[in-house]
């Protein structure tokens, strides 16, 4: 089975906290229904040490939104090879 790669992107405060903005990540071969939420925990993006974001494994911090291929998506949607996944901190535009 070929390696399934997705691109993960982070923005604003999230990017600075993690220390990276874009990364190619291989989806585990034994988890065909890997979601954004699963990847969030696998990449250790949560602020677990401080417990600040209040998220438990199995969910995302409530203030966070997910985009898949540059459109808002459910954090539980299974990821496909080639997807561009973005974790979006609270929006402040206009």
């Amino acid at each position: 089975m070929p390696t399934r790669l997705v691109t993960v992107r982070l923005f604003a405060a999230l990017r600075e906290r993690a220390g990276w903005g874009e990364r190619r990540v291989a989806l585990p071969a034994d988890q065909p229904r890997m979601s954004a939420t699963d990847l969030w925990w696998q990449l250790e993006l949560g602020d677990r040490a401080a417990g600040a974001d209040g998220a438990q494994p199995g969910s995302l911090p409530s203030s966070l939104r997910v985009a898949i291929n540059q459109a808002f998506a459910s954090p539980d949607q299974p990821l496909q090879a080639g997807d561009e996944l973005a974790f979006l901190p609270p929006i402040s535009g206009g």
Partner: peptide, 24 residues
């Protein structure tokens, strides 16, 4: 809609200190 649902993030700079805003 732009303020709440378009991906923009504001950071305020006061001197050398930058602070990301969370919300509008």
């Amino acid at each position: 809609a732009l303020k709440h649902d378009a991906p923009f993030w504001k950071r305020e700079w006061c001197g050398a200190d930058g602070r990301w805003l969370e919300g509008n």
